[in-house]
Structure formats: C-alpha cells, structure tokens
Amino acid sequence: MKVAIDFDNTFFTANRDVDDGMALLYLLGCPEVELIAVTSTFGNKGIDLVDRDTQHLLETLQLDLPYAKGGQACGDYLNPASRLLADLAAQYAGDLYVLATGSLTNLMGASLLNPDFFDQVAGFSLMGGTTAPLNFAKQEMLELNFSCDPQAAYQVLTKGHNVRVMTGNHCLDLLFTQEQYEAAFDRVEGPIVQMIQKYSAPWFRDNDLEYGIKGFYNWDSLAAACLVHPEYFSLDQEKYWLSVEGLARGRLHCPSQDPTQYVVTKPYQQTLVTTPRITKKEALKDHLYQTWLSLDDQQK
C-alpha cells in the first residue's frame, strides 16, 4: 500500500498534540505500507512551526523521503505540498492512498493543479469533524482540522472516492491511560520508544489540566490504523448533509444520529460518508503499541 501523509505535526512542540507524529511512526512500523511522501499543513499550529517539527522528525528518524511544506492558511492552495501531492496522484494513479490529519488545504490545491486528483487517489483516510460537541469535564474541545479550511474539507468529502472519516466523537471510544502507556513501553530502551515516551509524557498532564481527561486520545493514529487495518473497525456509512457553513464549525450533520440538534442551511449536499467505529478496542490498542515497539527492532 503506497501512502502519503499530509499532517499538522507538532511532535516536538510543548503543549501541542503528538498524535500526528505517532501516526507517522505507525505507518513506518506497518510492513504493508510503503510511505512515499510527507507533506505538512497548518492546523495544530502555524505552518512554519509544523514545517520545523516535521523536518526535525524526518531528520531524527533518518527518513529519506520526498517532503514539501504546505499552505499557511485557508485558501493558500498553490504551494509545494499541493504540487507534490498532485504529481504523486498522477504518478501512482489508482495506487496512492492519502492519510490527512490536519487542514485539507493541500488536498484542495492538488485537485486544482491536477483535475484528475480525486479520481486518481485510491482512497483517503481523514481525521477530523464532529457529529456532536466534544464536551469534557473542564471544557469543550474545538475541532481544528476540517474547520481550518471548510471549503477544502467540503471538496474532499464530496469529490473524493473511498473516503473514511475518523471523527473526533468516534475517537473517544479508545482512551490511552498513562498506566497502560507506561506498561506497554516498560523497560524498552530503544531510541524511538524513548523519544515517544519523552514527548508524549507532557500530553497526559496537559489533557488533565485543560480538559480533565485522564489519559489521551490518539486521534490521528486511529485514522492511520483504519486505513491500513480496517478489520479493527466497522466501516459505517451514513448520509450526511454537508455544507461549508457547517464544516466551518467542523460539524458533519447527520439527522439520523442527532435529529434534535440537526440544523443546516443551504447550500448543502447530501453525501454518503464512511465514519468508522472501533469494534475491537483492546486488540486495536495492542496492535498500535506493538507496531510502535517494532520500530526499534527494525533499526537493529
């Protein structure tokens, strides 16, 4: 499986999520995956910081892969990352899969540069969107992927083929606690596992302080796992009423799921969207840990 990852990676930045980097590490640990390119986009932070963290991660892992910096804001469609994605889609037409875990600006740009982009990409796995508010003990968590560029999100969701959307709500089905995390990596001395532990540790504290979450949700790694190993999920498909206005709030409107809060204004498009649900929770969690642990073995 040939995969390009387009993400808003902030792995080395304090008080920001590390799950984009964990998703990249997961792909590297999967023998089924040939990671062919990395592109950066804005979302968790601005593009310059994401670009810095991503180049640092590639250098740390000694990865010799095509890399391109993406758009810096909504509407910045013609950029190096979108050009790379447009070219890769043409080069690997029918064989390329895209994992996108930040704003979808670069994907929109790729479709403008290559009119056949959505037809040439075999499938997309996206992390983003909500079907209901993400309310936690201390405050609501805002959606920071689809809402960053709602026009781009609308285009990908309505024009892309084989699109899987790991929504924020469905990610809540699998909490990673600090105790589980430490047990999985206990007495493992490899450099990659040590790096994971070092930069993930503050995430537990930050989640507890900001949201009252006793652990963390590995949002982007779940989208990666759903792309490579869908057997851990049910690939539920429902009709969503999508609008740019709704996506500006990160919201996917599905009246059958939440008829009481269903509000959408025209123009909108009714679209069948695959929103996977985790069906084998503990098996998936173990699979993720084992895949990350395998990275140090691969380097020996």
Rank of each mutant, 00 (worst) to 15 (best):
D258I: 10
G212V: 13
R205M: 06
V273Q: 03
D53Q: 05
G246Y: 01
E59Q: 15
K214R: 10
D296T: 08
N114W: 02
A93G: 07
P267W: 02
E282S: 07
I192H: 04
V273S: 05
D8T: 10
Q257K: 15
G160K: 03
N15G: 09
T177K: 09
C30P: 00
K45M: 07
G21C: 01
D236W: 10
A81T: 07
Y92M: 09
L247E: 01
D6R: 05
D17M: 06
S234W: 06
D20Y: 00
G168C: 02
A37H: 05
A37W: 00
F204Q: 09
N218S: 13
L235I: 04
Y240A: 15
G71F: 01
Q197M: 15
C30M: 07
R205E: 08
L58P: 00
V165Y: 03
L209G: 02
K45I: 06
Q290E: 11
T105D: 04
A100V: 10
V33L: 09
K266S: 14
A89W: 05
K300G: 11
K280L: 13
K159D: 09
D87F: 07
S294N: 04
L99W: 09
D53W: 00
L272D: 12
L209E: 11
F146I: 06
H170I: 12
L57Q: 09
L144A: 09
A37Y: 02
P267G: 04
A110W: 03
T177S: 15
R83G: 09
D149K: 00
K45L: 11
P80V: 12
G70N: 06
L88R: 02
A100I: 14
L284S: 03
D8N: 12
L295D: 03
L85V: 05
L112S: 03
L112E: 13
A14H: 05
T167R: 05
V38H: 05
T260G: 05
A283G: 07
N44W: 00
H229C: 08
L175T: 13
G46L: 11
R187E: 11
L35I: 12
M127F: 14
Y77Q: 04
L142I: 04
K300Y: 10
A152G: 13
L107K: 02
D76K: 05
F136T: 14
F7Y: 06
Q178W: 08
C226E: 07
L272T: 13
G21V: 02
M1W: 01
Y97Q: 14
Y240L: 09
Y77V: 02
Q237R: 15
V263Q: 08
G246W: 00
G190R: 02
Q194W: 00
N15H: 14
L84H: 08
A100Q: 14
F117N: 07
D53M: 05
K138P: 07
A283W: 01
Q197T: 14
P150F: 09
K159A: 15
L247K: 02
S221P: 04
D119M: 08
P80Q: 05
N106Q: 09
V163I: 10
V98T: 06
D186V: 12
T41M: 03
L65C: 08
A4Q: 02
E140Q: 15
K266H: 11
D95A: 14
L65W: 01
D186M: 12
Y67Q: 10
K45W: 11
L157Q: 02
L295G: 06
H253N: 14
V188F: 06
D17F: 11
A81Y: 00
D64H: 12
Y181Q: 02
T13N: 04
H229L: 08
R52Y: 10
K281S: 08
L235T: 12
P80W: 10
S147N: 08
F185C: 00
